[in-house]
């Protein structure tokens, strides 16, 4: 119908999008779709094979884990309605994930700010590096959950404790990568800054920060991955709303199907977080690496 705009009355005003442009676009569609299908075919095939084996292995009476068909029967509501809310803790997976993401966002943002600042300090000052780097190297090996009892004791509340665990998990790779990035800023750029007498905060903002940005984003990317690993474990212990608690709660009520659905969601969200940081890194550091 919309294409008939130009038909009949040839004196009519030109349509907003010309017919030729639309046709040209439509003509490219088969090629684009064909390429998309060709590229995703191996993945689809692999998923079909995995689900088939799973179905075959688990679809008999007395199986300890549910088959895909049983999962659908048990938990299709979780998949189809991620945002239902029946009050209390009976919420859709989307709402649980949202609660977890909020914690991660806050903890990770704090870790990013503190990590970049500390990394700058350690990367710039020899004295700071000698004093702080050994401490960082020891503390970063402490598993995230080992911090939880300590932070519960300190904050006496579940919410800040969980955020602290995220912070303390994500901060180390940010610090270490930022410091390496700052130390690796080419002498040429430093010389340019010296000749034009750029110093102090301006020097950091205009030379050091952009030159170290690719390293900083590597640290942030490792950090967001670790945060997501830590939040699920931490929420299992602190309870309340959150995807980690949801999984633990499902285990306590023997809803194995719910657990499997939740795991798939956790994986997909973790993947999206990683892509998101990688993408923002590519946008911010455009041109920095190629020279």
């Amino acid at each position: 119908m919309s294409l008939s705009l130009t038909g009949g009355n040839s004196a009519a005003a030109a349509p907003l999008i010309s017919k030729d442009a639309v046709l040209a676009f439509v003509r490219t569609l088969p090629a684009v779709t064909a390429r998309g299908i060709a590229r995703s075919a191996p993945l689809v095939a692999m998923l079909v094979v995995i689900f088939a084996i799973w179905q075959f292995a688990a679809d008999h009476p007395g199986a300890s884990l549910p088959a895909p068909t049983k999962i659908w029967a048990d938990s299709s509501e979780l998949i189809l309605h991620p945002f239902y809310d029946r009050g209390g803790l009976d919420k859709g997976l989307g709402l649980h994930l949202f609660a977890s993401l909020q914690r991660v966002a806050l903890g990770f943002a704090l870790a990013g700010i503190a990590g970049i600042a500390l990394g700058m300090l350690v990367g710039t000052s020899e004295v700071a590096m000698r004093g702080l780097d050994p401490i960082f190297q020891v503390l970063r090996t402490v598993p995230p959950l080992a911090w939880l009892p300590l932070s519960l004791a300190a904050f006496r509340d579940a919410q800040p404790s969980a955020i602290f665990v995220i912070f303390i998990t994500a901060v180390w790779p940010v610090i270490i990568n930022t410091a390496v990035g700052v130390r690796n800023v080419p002498q040429d750029y430093r010389n340019v800054a010296r000749v034009i007498r750029l110093s102090g905060p301006k020097y950091f903002a205009k030379i050091i920060l952009p030159a170290a940005a690719p390293y900083i984003f590597t640290g942030l990317r490792i950090g967001i991955g670790l945060s997501w690993l830590a939040i699920v474990a931490a929420e299992m212990l602190i309870g309340g709303v959150g995807i980690g608690f949801f999984i633990w709660d499902a285990w306590n009520s023997s809803n194995i199907s719910d657990i499997i659905v939740a795991l798939i969601y956790v994986g997909l969200v973790g993947y999206c977080l990683d892509r998101l940081v990688a993408l923002s890194g590519r946008i911010v550091t455009r041109g920095t690496t190629a020279n």
Binding site: D188, Y189, N191, V192, V195, I207, P210, A211, A213, T285, R286, G287, T288, T289, A290, N291
Partner: peptide
């Protein structure tokens, strides 16, 4: 007052 043109240009790539 003593501007340098460096051997490898040293332009800031960003």
């Amino acid at each position: 007052d003593r501007a340098v043109v460096f051997q490898n240009h040293s332009l800031l790539p960003w």
